[in-house]
């Protein structure tokens, strides 16, 4: 990379700080950096009430009764100084996510085929050959926002969101791809579905995925 990315570190309300790169599209460097910064800040349990890594930004919240806004800001800047010199290596293992692509499981597969001028098999191949980073969890419990998918597969959201998207659905929104952990309304182009339960509040560990994980989609069934 020619020019070094420098994030902005700013207060957010009276109890938050936002570190953001504001890059256009997806930046692996920005995502890796905010996640590494999140890992460091997460160890400072006495200061932070939330540490929320995202695509190119990180939000932390603190208790304004215990921590002054200035010192919270300095703390984040110091942590950034530390990792900006050398990004710690992440040692996440790759989680395999089985997917049934197309058909009833992927009602919008044809939209992607049309815009990309690729066959369904080619779309599946391109979507599943990338190792994705889980960049962000939310907007509902279990929704995994993943890193950039293949350039040919980029596709805007539906103008009017679907009333209900099945849990486990895998979608595309512009350059993003992601997994719906729960049944919910949603505007992403759905190309497949995983039988893996991403979120189950009754399970001992309700979360199959967390931000920072690396995942790979494994096409299931008969590709014929």
């Amino acid at each position: 990379m020619a020019s070094k990315l420098i994030p902005r570190i700013r207060p957010f309300g009276d109890n938050g700080i936002l570190i953001s790169y504001d890059v256009k599209g997806y930046s692996e460097t920005a995502c890796k950096t905010v996640h590494a910064l999140g890992d460091i800040l997460r160890t400072q349990e006495d200061i932070w009430t939330n540490v929320i890594p995202a695509y190119d930004s990180l939000m932390v919240t603190f208790n304004p009764m215990m921590t002054k806004a200035d010192s919270a800001l300095h703390n984040v800047e110091a942590a950034y100084e530390k990792i900006s010199k050398r990004l710690p290596k992440s040692k996440s293992k790759i989680i395999e996510v089985p997917v049934y692509y197309g058909g009833q499981n992927g009602p919008d597969m044809q939209n992607i085929c049309k815009s990309s001028k690729l066959s369904e098999d080619q779309v599946i191949k391109r979507h599943s050959k990338i190792t994705y980073r889980v960049c962000l969890m939310g907007f509902i419990p279990g929704f995994a926002f993943l890193s950039e998918t293949d350039k040919k597969l980029h596709h805007p959201r539906h103008e009017t969101p679907r009333g209900l998207v099945s849990p486990g659905s895998i979608g595309i929104a512009n350059w993003q791809t992601g997994i719906y952990g729960l049944e919910s309304p949603g505007g992403w182009q759905i190309i497949g579905r995983t039988p893996l339960s991403i979120f189950d509040s009754k399970r001992k560990n309700p979360f199959a995925l967390k931000a920072g994980d690396m995942i790979r989609f494994v096409p299931q069934g008969d590709p014929s």
């Binding site: 936002l18 695509y55 939000m59 939310g138 907007f139 926002f145 512009n174």
Partner: peptide, 12 residues
């Protein structure tokens, strides 16, 4: 400008 999904809080 396009915005990528980013954190929000109650009261945002």
């Amino acid at each position: 400008k396009d915005m990528v999904s980013s954190p929000i809080l109650p009261g945002t």
